[in-house]
């Protein structure tokens, strides 16, 4: 059966499409980032001299790390809970737990602004409880970092949770029964059965989400603006739009791309080349 030509066509056309629209521009970005009326590293030098870049780099480390921590903790709790429950409660919680992800990111962020703004719903609730208002979004404050982290985690926790539920479902029930008959308590079962069996799924989720987390852009842009909680993506956006420094903007974004590729490679090697692709 000679269908190889058709199959190459089927694989080739979409690949070319992706290369033309995603990879080729990125490659051109690399070229442009080294151009300043001739080949030069001046763009990079300018970026590296900029104090805002270093704040953005720090933000690009703190926010993803915090977000991953929060979303993994909540996702694990949710996954364990949902996996153990049956019936109506489970059905409601099941749908509810995926909803934040179903809400378009920009919609959730718009709402988060109304919730966290100085006279927003959260401070309103604190006021009703007789507590002092908290400056959730004051630029550069610790609170603003915390807020950004929570909102970012809020949106993507469902994805992490779904991966973990998938992982939990591969654990054969006999293992739990065996552990129980061996006299293992709830904590021991979790420590010696659930966690080791779940580790591959968690690692996969970590690589997948870690890459996404490093690309953070909208959350900080919408909640705090560019200088509130700067990250590299918004910093590059700022250079592009406000500062009118397109070549510097490209240099900054290439630095970010480089960091992500290195991280991803490290993650993929850690996964021993297990595929970590999901439809989302």
């Amino acid at each position: 059966m000679r269908s190889t030509f058709t199959l190459w066509l089927f694989a080739g056309v979409p690949t070319l499409f992706i290369v033309a629209l995603l990879l080729a521009p990125a490659a051109q970005g690399v070229v442009l980032s080294f151009d300043r009326g001739g080949p030069s590293i001046a763009n990079y030098a300018a970026v590296l001299r900029d104090r805002l870049f270093w704040r953005a780099a720090a933000g690009n480390l703190i926010v993803p790390a915090g977000s991953l921590l929060v979303e993994f903790a909540i996702a694990l709790a949710l996954a364990l809970t949902l996996n153990a429950r049956n019936g109506r409660i489970a059905a409601v919680a099941d749908v509810a737990s995926i909803l934040p992800f179903a809400i378009p990111e920009i919609v959730l962020l718009a709402l988060a602004r109304y919730i966290f703004m100085p006279r927003g719903y959260l401070n309103g609730a604190l006021y009703a409880a007789g507590a002092a208002a908290i400056p959730w979004l004051v630029p550069g404050s610790l609170w603003s970092y915390a807020t950004v982290i929570v909102v970012d985690a809020w949106h993507v926790t469902p994805v992490v949770m779904l991966i973990m539920v998938a992982g939990l479902q591969t654990i054969p029930p006999e293992l739990y029964e065996a552990a129980r008959l061996d006299g293992a308590g709830t904590l021991a079962t979790f420590r010696y059965v659930t966690l080791p069996m779940l580790a591959p799924a968690m690692l996969a989720a970590l690589v997948l989400r870690g890459i996404d987390a490093l690309r953070i852009f909208s959350t900080t842009l919408v909640l705090t603006g560019i200088e509130g909680v700067p990250v590299i993506s918004t910093y590059a956006y700022h250079l592009w739009t406000d500062a009118q420094e397109p070549r510097m903007a490209m240099a900054a974004s290439i630095i970010l791309a480089f960091v992500i590729v290195i991280t991803a490679l490290a993650g993929l090697i850690a996964l021993r080349r297990r595929a970590v692709l999901t439809p989302l």
Binding site: A11, T15, P25, R215, P246, S253, I260, V261
Partner: peptide, 24 residues
């Protein structure tokens, strides 16, 4: 090959693609 390509496409931060793409 498809998995590798798809992974590569997914790694890139939006901003690194969007800026040069705008030029194109």
């Amino acid at each position: 090959a498809g998995m590798a390509g798809v992974t590569a496409a997914r790694l890139l931060p939006m901003i690194a693609v969007a800026l040069p793409l705008t030029v194109v």
